[in-house]
């Protein structure tokens, strides 16, 4: 995954995430080019999106672990219309659900990939796009990043 963090950022917009007690660890990891997700210590479920409670067994005893960053396309669309103003100049863009190798299916974009080769089941790997917003108010805090994916081929 160290390779993918050097992928040139595409021009897609980002935004400022709501960093909270539910998800701070996730955003801290994105600043380092990693995906960290909570796993329930009671039932072993890897939980997407990050939160403070296991939605399967309601345990609040969660641990965080690093995902591989690899996955496959579960579904996708080449969006050409019907998006907010800041996205319009970036159309068409590829919105996708990607299934991480660890299980969860995450909403994302496929970037730096010819849309015509995208298909369900295609292998993809994570890239991280700098949001320009630091993960905390502390001096020198790194910026959070948005998780996107690109074709491995």
């Amino acid at each position: 995954m160290s390779d993918t963090t050097t992928t040139a950022a595409s021009q897609l917009p980002t935004g400022e995430p709501n960093i909270s007690h539910d998800n701070r660890r996730y955003w801290e990891a994105t600043a380092e080019g990693r995906i960290e997700l909570p796993r329930c210590t009671a039932c072993d479920l890897v939980i997407w999106y990050p939160r403070s409670i296991c939605p399967d067994c309601q345990s609040m005893d969660l641990s965080w672990e690093t995902m591989s960053g690899n996955g496959t396309v579960y579904s996708y669309t080449i969006t050409r219309a019907g998006v907010g103003r800041k996205w319009r100049e970036h159309l068409p863009l590829v919105v996708a659900y990607v299934q991480l190798d660890e299980g969860p299916i995450v909403l994302t974009n496929i970037v730096d990939t010819d849309p015509s080769i995208i298909e369900i089941g295609m292998a993809v790997t994570a890239v991280f796009h700098d949001t320009g917003h630091p993960i905390s108010d502390e001096d020198g805090a790194p910026n959070s990043a948005i998780l996107r994916f690109t074709s491995v081929s």
Partner: peptide, 25 residues
């Protein structure tokens, strides 16, 4: 302010995009 917001709002998925992915699948 929804707990899912920061995990769904930064990808340009309008209403149409979501249903298009359902159709694709």
């Amino acid at each position: 302010s929804a707990p899912e917001a920061s995990f769904e709002n930064f990808f340009g998925m309008g209403v149409i995009g979501g249903y298009a992915m359902a159709a694709q699948r």
